[in-house]
Simulated assay, not measured.
Amino acid sequence: MSRRPPGPWCRLGAALVALGLLAGCGVPDEDTPRAVAPPPGPFPTSGGVVTTPPPTLTAGRATEVLCFVRDDRLVRVQRRVDGTPTVDAQLQHLLAGPTAAERDSGLSTALPGAVATAAARHVGTEAEVDVGETGDETGRSDEVLAFGQIVCTLTARSDVDTVEFLRGGTSLGVPRADGSLSRRPLTVADYADLVAPR
């Protein structure tokens, strides 16, 4: 007994069943678009080298105050940083000078002429700054502004009230705004006449 080939209705029914199964395997439509998070890296490249995506640049979580010079006045500048720097880290940022953008806005520094190198440590509410010897080839030599920059910068911190300058462990006499030398711990009030209004 020979089998008859399936009729047109049978073939149509089979096609409809197949279409129904295929429709059930797709992603359903949504009324609004939604964000899709990328899978976690690292991601392989065509060369077989594993790479990680670059970090996202975000604004810093803390504010660091540095004092630079404009028109022979001390100017406070705020920078955003990832975390509150140590006293010495903040001093090193000051010694590095203004950024290109800050220089373009007219800011400069008097530090190279008076304080080429320095290190700071925290002692209670005082910052002790050990000042290195200046070299023969230095820039500006306006010591009042240079030491004022350091005092203005470090006393802008909530945990520093005074700054004492040392050289080789001995108190160093530094000029105040009125031109007098002082070996005692200094505050921003000693340079108040030089600080530009905010």
Score class of each variant (00 low, 15 high):
T52F: 11
T51L: 10
P53S: 12
R80L: 05
D71S: 10
V69R: 00
R76G: 11
T58G: 12
P53Y: 15
R73E: 10
F68I: 07
R70Y: 13
P53E: 15
R73Q: 01
C67V: 13
C67H: 11
D82M: 05
R61A: 07
C67M: 11
D82S: 10
V77Y: 02
T52H: 12
P55L: 07
V75M: 06
V87Q: 02
V69C: 07
C67P: 12
R70M: 12
V65R: 15
T52E: 09
V75Q: 00
L66F: 04
V77H: 03
D71A: 05
P85M: 02
P53W: 15
V87W: 05
R80G: 02
L57P: 11
R61Q: 02
D82V: 11
V77P: 00
E64C: 07
V87G: 02
T84F: 01
P54W: 00
A62P: 07
D72M: 07
Q78G: 09
T86M: 12
C67N: 02
P85E: 00
P55Q: 15
P54A: 08
L66V: 06
D71M: 04
A62Q: 14
L66W: 08
T84P: 06
L57T: 12
L66A: 10
A59I: 08
R80T: 05
R61G: 08
T56C: 05
C67T: 11
G60A: 04
V77E: 00
T86C: 12
E64N: 06
T56L: 12
R79A: 11
D72Q: 11
G83I: 03
P55R: 09
T84S: 10
R70L: 15
T86K: 09
R73S: 11
L66C: 04
R61P: 03
V77S: 10
L57A: 14
R79C: 12
G83R: 06
V69I: 04
R79F: 02
D71F: 02
P53R: 15
R80P: 03
D72T: 10
R73L: 00
P85H: 00
V81F: 13
L57Y: 13
T51A: 14
D71R: 08
T56D: 07
V65H: 14
